[in-house]
């Protein structure tokens, strides 16, 4: 009986770990972008919408206090400065810098 429970728990644990490791195993990319003018979350929605329209972008988060936009996407996602300047201008904000982060961290 105990061994059956242990086996079940082990299976659940493996499935759990595997599930949360998927993005890392898939080797996604992660970018940290600094932008100015981010004063309210409602106004920042345009940034999310613009990034989500780019092929390969999977998720966008915005940290207002730090003025950061965190973009995660496919392994071969490339974000170039000229297109980011236009993207942020179209969203109504000012692009500053971009940094590629280690997505496994």
């Amino acid at each position: 009986m105990n061994s059956k429970i242990n086996k079940l728990l082990r299976t659940v644990f493996i499935l759990f770990v595997f599930n949360f490791s998927l993005p890392v195993l898939a080797g996604g990319s992660l970018f940290e972008i600094r932008a100015d003018g981010l004063a309210c979350p409602y106004c920042a929605y345009g940034i999310e919408k613009k990034f989500m329209a780019i092929k390969g972008v999977k998720h966008v988060d915005i940290k207002l206090k730090e003025g950061l936009v965190i973009v995660s996407g496919d392994e071969n996602l490339i974000l170039e400065e000229p297109e980011l300047k236009i993207l942020f201008d179209d969203a109504g904000f000012t692009y500053r810098t971009i940094k590629k982060l280690d997505s496994k961290k």
């Binding site: 100015d36 003018g37 981010l38 207002l64 206090k65 109504g92 904000f93």
Partner: peptide
């Protein structure tokens, strides 16, 4: 038409 915009960290 927004003809002027000054963005700084957390301020617009």
């Amino acid at each position: 038409y927004r003809f002027w915009r000054k963005d700084t960290l957390g301020v617009q």
